[in-house]
Design a protein around this nucleic acid. Sequence first.
DNA 1: CTGAAAGCGCTTACAG
DNA 2: CTGAAAGCGCTTACAG
Lengths: 362, 362
Amino acid sequence: MNVRKKKTARAATLADVGRAAGVSAMAVSAALNETRTSARISELTRVKILEAAEALGYRPNVAARALVKRRMNTIGVSVVWADDELNNYFVEIFNGIIESSSRHGQNATVFTFHNWAEEMDKVSSSCDGRIDGMILVAPLLTVELAATLPNHTPFVALHANTEYEGIVNIESNEESGAREMVNAMISMGHRRIMHVSGPRGLVGAERRIRGYYAALNDAGIEADPALLVLSKFTAADGCRSMLSWLKSNKGKPLPDAIFCANDAIAIGCMEALASMGVRIPDEVSICGFDDTLAARTTVPQLSTVRQPLRMMGAKAVDVLMRRIDAMRDKGSEDMTSPVVFDTSVVLRGSIVKASGKTRLVP
Amino acid sequence: MNVRKKKTARAATLADVGRAAGVSAMAVSAALNETRTSARISELTRVKILEAAEALGYRPNVAARALVKRRMNTIGVSVVWADDELNNYFVEIFNGIIESSSRHGQNATVFTFHNWAEEMDKVSSSCDGRIDGMILVAPLLTVELAATLPNHTPFVALHANTEYEGIVNIESNEESGAREMVNAMISMGHRRIMHVSGPRGLVGAERRIRGYYAALNDAGIEADPALLVLSKFTAADGCRSMLSWLKSNKGKPLPDAIFCANDAIAIGCMEALASMGVRIPDEVSICGFDDTLAARTTVPQLSTVRQPLRMMGAKAVDVLMRRIDAMRDKGSEDMTSPVVFDTSVVLRGSIVKASGKTRLVP
DNA sequence: CTGAAAGCGCTTACAG
DNA sequence: CTGAAAGCGCTTACAG
């Protein structure tokens, strides 16, 4: 039972196993790796070696192997840790990354920081042999900064804010997703549709805004500038933005429906509306964007524009593996064109047919 | 602009920098590491070296360094990936792990699998030099299996299901948290209190059940066996368990309040109740356990027993670092006693004073 | 079928 | 103040 006593025990090495089996270290290496090179080990020695390795609990040292193979079998994931919290958007993506990287026999290491532009060197300095490639989640960078990334490491981005030379981007057609969602609201009888958007200038925010306007235009509805509310992509900001809109629009009509730029904003809005006694969906319909786990844990459940975030995360790994291989073996081909996924409208309890009655802001 | 063209470029090595600066590789090492050993580099050469390193974008290769220093500056995090999804419980903990490990200058690598007992070798085989220590999140192991973990790697567990020799556990006093919460419900006038529990036999589930009974006992309320509903720790199971209870109790009185064994179960129950037209909190009060992010995104917001999961994750890293140091340097002392955090009752909108009226199951 | 040698990129004593 | 040597644990040719 006191197996765990000698805590200072060093892990067994190839040489240890060789000594125990009465062969050289490299015979052990050959036997264990079943390498089909010149070294063909006799069945007898192989068995001896395997037994010795088993008995010593031998595990090849990854650092040593990486040094010669130039492969850590680890991919890096860089993400901004806004408000010191991993958000639901990231969690969905990370699920996909884990799924795919484990399928590829890779580990995933997470690198977090607070600001892309200011901490670029943290990304660069992670490319020091500990990872074979890097996924940038929603990077917000100038083209100049992106160009300073080390060129001995392959990169893939998810939802990049612009095109970066040499970095493959994975994204989705957010604009048409937004348009379809607002179309769906309109077809359910809603006319006064509010959009609580992300920060202007961010490509994701702008695409949703364009889709929103396009849908209104499709239906011949004139856009009311008072119904475009700027926010940031968090629940706290969504709540704040909605509350301040309500405050400055007392007595005026509430919107029929609210299209939020992501699920987090929608949740913040639901909170704000609930706190003012506005009932969802009876008095106001609402939806989010992304289809994160959180959209299914609200009551009522949140309608949303689904981006297949998990698949996108998985795809990022697939592409990255291709790029890593391409950089190592001259044989395999690199992958350079962006990948665009389809979005889809998911209707849940938070959107109902327009009642015809308009409630005023309390 | 075509900096990124030569993609096959190899990262610069110590020797490369030395060549550029006209000194030996080890002079570069000494200068860059500001090692206070014998090697004291003149100011002039130091500057030359730093310039050369900068120009070449030199980054010490981690694998090479790890090989000699026996430190990867990376900690492993093992977690069961139930239903192929990282749950909110894990996300809170992981936030703490990231926060603390980055404070210690460490990276965190996540290892996921489906079943503790069956995939123990995955945990063991991760201890191959790629990590310096490992955090086991909510491990579900027999003592015998835990004893097979390699003894050259230090371990820390969070919410371990039992005591494992040589593994430091971080936990919280869940029983008294449960008791206080049910006490709070009782003091708000609720008498018929249901508990939707986790699976019997799991230490976390049993502690909540004991706390629930203790509170009823405190108040002289006789426990109604029909009000103990068994579930699993997920929203889907919480929903399912509640629906099946409702189905088999048609026409009988609803509970006044429901104490759920975690936030996920509570969210599932809210969904089930909402689908049957039962209004929360007007007709039934409800609460969860953990205080995950999800508890703040329900409408109404979920009352819950707070475990400081994030702090607990951070603490796990702190303890692990101590253990790693202790194993390396004979000087510093190991840390072996478990750490127990306090829980606290968090009251939000989902619990209100008892109305006095009892609604029947629809 | 098997071993001795060289080298991956670094650091740590040890000489000058 | 600085360099030559040895070694961390592995793999990859190259000899026998």
